[in-house]
Simulated scan of single mutants.
Amino acid sequence: MLLMKQWYVLQIYAGYEEQVKAELERRIKDDDQGGRLGEVLVPTAKMKQMFGAVEEKDQQLFPGYVLIELEMAPELVRFVLNTPRVLRFLGGKNPIALSNKEVDRVLEKIKGGVVLTNDKDDFVVDSEITVEDGPFTGFVGIIEKVDADTKKLIVKVSIFGRMTPVELRFDQVKK
């Protein structure tokens, strides 16, 4: 049976994204596993800082997470999980590959197709946010609907592996 490489999300210790990427790339180079392991990405995008002067800098889209391309096989899962500071694959014992649409969206942001700003009133449908307040603090979601009048958003977050719509106020989220 021929397996295809797909993208998966690794949860890691926050703040160690670049170190984990470097370590995974080194280990992949040393033991290529027959080409069954692909790229490792730390998704970042340009963010405009609007404090006086306009300044652009790279900001991580998903702190505490790294994307990896691989063929899903038990020996490769063990190989990746034995990397220092890697906690788990999203999806637990049965990691779920990202859809092509999700991968395209992340790659578009990395290439600069979408520029993030930190203007609270500039929420865009299909953009990602992080919940900073309330019962979903720490969750990353995708904006499904923006209601500027009531300053509320409908955001889809993954709860127990299912995308669930949640209503949040503008001040509860961060881009």
Rank of each mutant, 00 (worst) to 15 (best):
P95D: 01
R88A: 04
K101E: 15
L116T: 09
E108S: 14
I96A: 09
P74H: 00
V106A: 03
T83V: 04
V80P: 07
F79K: 04
G92W: 04
L116S: 10
E102Q: 11
T117V: 14
K101N: 14
F89V: 07
V77L: 10
E102S: 08
V115D: 06
V86W: 05
L90R: 10
V77Y: 02
P74Q: 01
R105G: 06
G91W: 02
I96E: 13
G113K: 02
E75V: 14
L90S: 06
R78V: 10
V86N: 07
L116R: 14
P74V: 00
K93A: 13
G91S: 03
R85H: 10
D104H: 14
R78M: 11
I110M: 13
G112Y: 00
G113C: 00
A73L: 09
G113H: 00
A73Y: 02
D104K: 13
P95E: 00
N118L: 13
K101T: 14
L90G: 12
K93V: 11
A97V: 03
P95Q: 01
F79P: 06
T83Q: 11
L116I: 13
R78K: 14
V77E: 07
R85V: 09
N100F: 11
G91E: 08
F89C: 09
V106L: 10
G91Q: 04
E108Y: 12
K93Q: 14
V103P: 02
A73P: 02
P95R: 03
N94M: 12
V114D: 12
L107D: 08
R88T: 09
N118A: 06
L116F: 13
P84E: 04
A97S: 09
R105E: 14
G92A: 12
K109H: 09
K93L: 09
F79M: 05
G92I: 08
I96R: 12
V86K: 08
L76N: 12
P74R: 00
G91V: 06
L76S: 07
N82L: 05
V115I: 12
N118F: 10
L76H: 06
A97Y: 07
K109C: 14
V106I: 15
G91P: 11
V77N: 03
